[in-house]
Design a protein around this nucleic acid. Sequence first.
RNA 1: GGACGCUUAGCUCAGUUGGUUAGAGCACCUCGCUUACACCGAGGGUGUCGGGGGUUCGAGUCCCUCAGCGUCCACCA
Length: 959
Amino acid sequence: MSEISKSYEARDVEAKWYAAWQEAKCFAGKAAPGQETYTIVIPPPNVTGILHMGHVLNNTLQDALIRRARLEGKAACWIPGTDHAGIATQTMVEKHLKKTEGKGRRDLGREEFLKRVWIWRDEKGDHILKQLRELGCSCDWDRTHFTMDPGYSRAVLTSFIKLFDGGHIYRGKRMVNWCPVSLTALSDEEVEMRPTKGHIYRLRYELVEPSTTTDAEGNVIPLTHLILETTRPETIAADVAVAVHPDDARYTRLVGKAVWRPLGERIQIPIIADAAVDPAFAAGALKVTPAHDKVDFEIGQRHRLPVIDALHPDGTMNEFAGPELAGLERFAARKKAAEILHERGNLIEAKPHENNVGHSQRAGVPIEPRLTQQWWLRYPRVEEAKQVVRDGLIQMHPERWSKVYLNWLENIQDWCISRQLWWGHRIPVWYAKGIDRETLTEADLRDPTKIHVSLDGPADVENWIQEDDVLDTWASSWLWPFATLGWPDAEAQAKAGFSQFYPTTTLATGADIIFFWVARMIMAGLEFTGTGGELQPGQGAEGEGQKEQADQTSVHPRPKPLAPRLTESELKARIPFKHVYFNGIVRDKQGRKMSKTLGNSPDPLDLIVKYGADGLRFGLLQSAPLGQDVKFDEDRIESGKGFCNKIWNAARFRQISGPMSDNSSLHAILCRLDPSRCDDDDHAILTALLDTTRTLERSFADFEFAGATQRLYSFFWNDFCDWYVEVAKTRVQDPAAKDHALAVQDLVIRQFLLLFEPFAPFITEELWSLLGYAPADKRFLQDTRLDTASALAAAIAARGITADPVASERVEKLKQVASLARQLKTDQAVPQKRDVRFFVLARQAEWLALEKSAAKLARLVGAADIGRTTEKLALPAIVTPLGTLYLDTGVKIDAAAERTRLTKELEAVTKHIAGTEARLGNEAFTSKAPPAVLEGARKQLADQQAKRAELDRLLAALR
RNA sequence: GGACGCUUAGCUCAGUUGGUUAGAGCACCUCGCUUACACCGAGGGUGUCGGGGGUUCGAGUCCCUCAGCGUCCACCA
């Protein structure tokens, strides 16, 4: 045991212990037969990501949970890994290529490009996992997964095949959200609606045959054109109709007639009636452009209208937009179109207009609704996914998120899972050479001579062409909780301990990915895991039958009828996690989300250097109430560091105070206690210790981390350091009482370190070691079990010490006396010297209570001594719960000032008494309030009355 | 247009099922380097608990309503 240095140097300690933990494989997730497990899968960060404050919060929470579980004796397993992050990574590499080589991905070709991405990944990837180590995260690093690893990829492709075979997947030409920058389709979830300022253009479409309409009074008036409004005049050349509401009397006569299309080829387009048109909006007429708007597309379908696509995939106009616009970028084209319409007299006015426009979440540009061939998924197990949350098999914290979740599932839409990217899992579908992909029917998809679907591809691969598209990243990460445990390979599952660690226990993540990830994982877990007999071919018990799957190269069964609903026990076995904890978003002081572009996010690594990993962890959690956003404040982190330093010094003081006797087990420390020497302070601190232990149990059960950290803070700093250690100083100097007093401190510090370790693993480990708490055969803190409050209470009781609840009250009173004494000194402008004396005017019983504590009290308040007086003194006085306290400074009393002070005090007391009397005088109150409240009020009144009486006497004495 | 969250001290936030005189940290002021810690100790708070209404003996806490801020969902051209 070496000497503890004067201040806590976090960085040295952190590096040393992390290496030791890894060396000893402390974080390995291994379960003994029958052992309770606690599993967390990390929300896999982007493989090329950099640690930001959101990660710090999220991972600190996970680490706290997993470390606590370890201390509770559970087999804890925290599975780390990274996500290949399709679009994000591909975009990053493309940018890099452009910059360094001036090339695009198509210049390199698919194979070469992918090679470059892998090189990039190997160079820049996994950096974030190293950063998590700096933070102290106790992941089982040997289980690190990457969504593009061979095993994981196999899981992803297997899931596709299973869903395909089950009839959940289809291919279809439908409207998708197209990103003109990334050149791929996106799912609805990847589209963000943003209020966007633009213009709305009021246009006239000339009627081919002038007609008449009826005004509000029923008068028939001539009509030469239709008025309609659009925000996208550049797409007019792709208009194929104008629609009005069928019940709109203004236009009844016009339906079936035609207008001239004002841009592009001057052709006639029909006026049709469709209920999708809102007659109250603008003029009640809508230009129908099926290729460029979802609603228009649907109208087009209903009326069998042609589709004219006027845009290139990259967002520039094509030849269908007309010679004036072709080649222009879409927003330039919009301007140009408006100019042309103006020149032709079709533009009535252009008004500034703000509307919600779908933007690509990643690229930040408006998306284009675009008609393309894509792969779609009908979500499996939707009903069961609702049920498991509704029935509480999966609990969300805070609970309110389950409503958001259920609402989404109620309105769920098919998932566009194909992406026109290269970086990702290439869809395991091969088309027979020579077939036309555009015209494939649902039946063709099931025809093995036309379509081949398998893990390893067709044997005669030369006759086939593989699908170009890859899967949406989320269509791989939705398998994360079980693919990381070996699914679907039986051997891998056995090795990973699937049967023990699945379902995982808690998922900690941000609510921003509740749809992207959480909901989908639940459906995937329900669909793919489990050992029930109703499963589809190739999914036998514990993933057996995968070989069979691999052989399934030529036969694809017809879609199965919907799988039967799962039973309660199947649901329980298949859910991917039991709890979902949604942590808040870390915001800056102004409440803005922290982001790279704003530059308002501090680098966590800098903070670790400045405040230590423990300081950062503790500081952040202190300000992270359940499910509430966190406003980041560096002062909090600083206070986290300050707390660590306080703990450090308390430990150091303990070491200085006396020999470190046997600390190697709870039992050893308990044996050093001398029950006969237990005083009120011992009882009070042990009571507080048990209470803190109990609070922590509740906090972890309820995911109330802020409460937990606050409790630890106030217990250690206020209860232990500020009071217990201070009052114990007197006893520690008494050879007879010393051993006992130090044993109590050792007991408190030991339990505190165990409670604190999940939040601050480094400093606790260091002190655990320095103070000799580690048994000979168990080097690390985590090797010792954390006793529950009741177990600890029982152990202490077994040593003959039962916490005396009244002792805490007496100590509270003493604390008040100390505080009042100091107050009196400050009031009298007495510096904190010791040459003052206090006298207590106390009855015999009170004095007996005080006398025992007089010496330590004197020390606490900085007095030479505290004596008793039986008569009133002409000295500055203050009324305390244990009698009137006089301060003798040796200076003549300033009677006037004293009178003022006491009068002020008297006024406050009188006011309080009046309030209490009024309450107690109220019959409604005395008859209806519970006895405890009533008694409390009476006691309070009595106390205050006694105080008033004493103040009256003191004032009288001053005359 | 729906749904949810937030509004308490200068700042960041606690306030359990309604029950003494609403708390903590930071910041600020005063005093103190008392042999663990100046990353410390002691003392210092007159807060319309966002506004209004209601229920109740009693409301920061429950109900209604309004306002501001934030988030999510939604096809209004």
